[in-house]
Structures are given as C-alpha cells and as structure tokens.
Amino acid sequence: MLELRLVQGSLLKKVLESIKDLVNDANFDFSSSGFSLQSMDSSHVALVALLLKSEGFEHYRCDRNTSMGMNLGNMSKMLKCAGNDDIITIKGDDGSDTVTFMFESPTQDKIADFEMKLMDIDSEHLGIPEAEYHAIVKMPSAEFARICKDLASIGDTVVISVTKEGVKFSTRGDIGTANIVLRQNTTVDKPEDATVIEMNEPVSMTFALRYMNSFTKATPLSNTVTISMSPDLPVVVEYKIAEMGYVRFYLAPKMEE
C-alpha cells in the first residue's frame, strides 16, 4: 500500500517538467522516508537524481519499499491535467501494474483520478561518491538560465571557470565569442539574489550547452541554483525543493583527447 498526498501539487508538476525531456522513463523508488529517482539520459552524458522526502507530504504512507517504472512523458501528460492549485495524491497497491494520480481542487468540488500503466525498466543504479568540490557557485536560478540561453545562441559548449575574480561562462562559435563574468555579490536585498562563490582551488571545465539548457527547465522549482565543480568529476547543478529535497543534474565534462 502506497499513498502520498502532496498539498502543493504544482511541485510535482514542475519536477516532471524539469526532467521529462532528459529522461524517457525511470524507476521511482518509494520508501518510508520519501521517494527518489535516479536515471541517466539515453547517451549516458547526464544523470538526474531526484529526492522528495516524506516530511514534505501532508500524508505519506509506504508500507514496504517499492519501485515503480514510469514513462515520464506519459506521467507528465497526466500531471498536466492537474490544476496548479490542486492537491495531488499518488496511490499504488502491491503487485499492481498501475499507479493512480488523484487530483483534488482546493475547494474539493472537483476530484479526478488518472490511472497510469507502469512499465518494467531495467535501469542500472550508480553510486555517486561524496566529493569535496574545488568550487561551488550559488546564484539566482533565473540568471543561470539566462546565461545558458544567451550562450547557446553563440556556441555549443560553455567553459565555466572559477577563480578568485569570480565565475566566468565562455563560449565560441562561428559568429564570434562570448564571455560573461559574475562576481561574488552578497550585498543584495534578498538572499536568493546573491551570487556566492566558494573556491578551494581554481577550476575550469567544458560542458555541452544543450544539456545545461535542459537542466534550466528546473528553474521554477527554486530561486537559486548551486553549481559544484571538480576537474575529475561531473558538474552538479542542484535545484533545492523547499523543505522537501532536490533535483540534481550531473553532467559529464568535455575532456581533451
């Protein structure tokens, strides 16, 4: 028996919108502490890790650990049928080959249930090691999205360099080059507008902008984004989901031959 009631149903809608274009289908792993998902894109260049903790749900019941394979495109189609103010409940029964999404309007005058077929997914689970990163940049998520979009109109890859001067995003393409430098800025009215650069050692890495732009679909989930880099590891682009968990995107770097 599985029953999860999320009053802020729009969060789940936003989560799906942020990952459905990167990953076609994935296993959702439910346990008593919450649910998680880990999946690579089809080319194994990027990995998404999602965590939603049980504390964030108004009601959370998961009698035994269970894994449900879902097509994210189909799940997104169903969740799009929920209103932004709707309460969403996820229900499942042991051994069933379907999952039910129930949508309740805030005034309880409209109740809908959508039953979705589950699928068997043979996915490999990767161990993500704890790491000390050379540099961690926390910045407004809208600013990061703007930079990735702007640079993608010039080039295909971005070089992200962190020095004590700041963080530099650079690209080059047929029409020319672009460099955007952000300096640490903590003298802002609202903490979410700050750019905070923690640097243990300078780092410079190259990434495909196509993936970075895909990650920025998570922008509605959080006002801030955290970018963690070490030369020998995939970059981590993390959007925290208030008091519930996170969506983390890992992107393998482009490396010199």
Binding site: M40, A46, L126, G127, A252, M255
Partner: peptide, 14 residues
C-alpha cells in the same frame, strides 16, 4: 579537440 565523456566513466554501478 575535446570529447564528450560519459557519466559511467566517473560513477560505478552499485
């Protein structure tokens, strides 16, 4: 020339 690496180069299966 830089080449796109993959996640599995860095993270192992568990």
């Amino acid at each position: 020339v830089s080449k796109q690496s993959t996640i599995t180069k860095f993270f192992n299966k568990v």
